[in-house]
């Protein structure tokens, strides 16, 4: 400790604080709290955290087919013979695969782009796993007839879906987009024009 009561910059505590501070959404105070929590925790708990961090970096790879995070390639979904193989759902992030799987309503395969076209953030089509998707679709053995683009319903998601549509339609593949409209529990009064317009456009018969 120096005279102001702070750990020296090269001390183990300062290095741990700095490591936590590099994580997204963690400010300097939160980083300190986390570091001191680890310091006070039993040796076993700290060891488990360290092991988990190293293990995830060592064992998690990208599935060679769908680009999802997995411990074995091909991943569990790509290797499942009971999945429908003619439909691929394209998502932005691995967490989106988990979200769609939770619904239990989709039995096809996935493709993870690992991002979305966002010029404002310097992300272009070449930074995403689009070439891998094209290679997969051009492989005649896959027999894919439909690609569902499940990017988020925002500007970047729209740009990505239109870009994919432009690329994939000439391959003779049907390109669809998740339906857009009002979320459950929304108020019409507060809906924006785009959302409300699309909710009207994609209205359904009441059954």
């Amino acid at each position: 400790m120096n005279t102001q009561g702070r750990p020296a910059a090269d001390s183990p505590i300062a290095r741990l604080v700095e490591a936590f501070h590099r994580l997204p959404g963690i400010g300097p105070k939160s980083a300190q709290r986390l570091a001191y929590h680890v310091l006070r925790a039993p040796q076993q708990e700290a060891q488990e955290l360290a092991d988990a961090l190293l293990e995830v970096k060592r064992s998690v790879v990208l599935c060679a087919r769908c680009q999802d995070l997995t411990t074995e390639s091909p991943c569990r979904i790509c290797g499942d013979a009971s999945r429908e193989r003619t439909v691929i759902c394209v998502v932005e992030e691995p967490l989106d695969v988990r979200a769609i799987e939770r619904t239990g309503g989709f039995r096809g395969l996935y493709h993870v782009l690992h991002g979305v076209i966002s010029p404002a953030d310097g992300v272009g089509p070449e930074d995403l796993k689009i070439q891998e998707l094209l290679a997969r679709l051009r492989d005649v053995d896959t027999g894919v007839t439909e690609v569902i683009v499940a990017t988020n319903p925002n500007l970047e998601g729209e740009a990505t879906s239109m870009y994919l549509g432009r690329l994939l339609r000439p391959l003779g593949i049907t390109v669809t987009r998740l339906a857009r409209g009002l979320p459950a529990g929304a108020d019409l009064e507060y809906a924006d024009d785009v959302t409300l317009g699309r909710a009207l456009e994609f209205r359904q018969e009441v059954r």
Binding site: A184, A186, D192, V194
Partner: peptide, 11 residues
């Protein structure tokens, strides 16, 4: 998902 403002604050 139920934000009243998000759609009005899209780029």
């Amino acid at each position: 998902a139920r934000s009243r403002m998000a759609g009005h604050l899209e780029p």
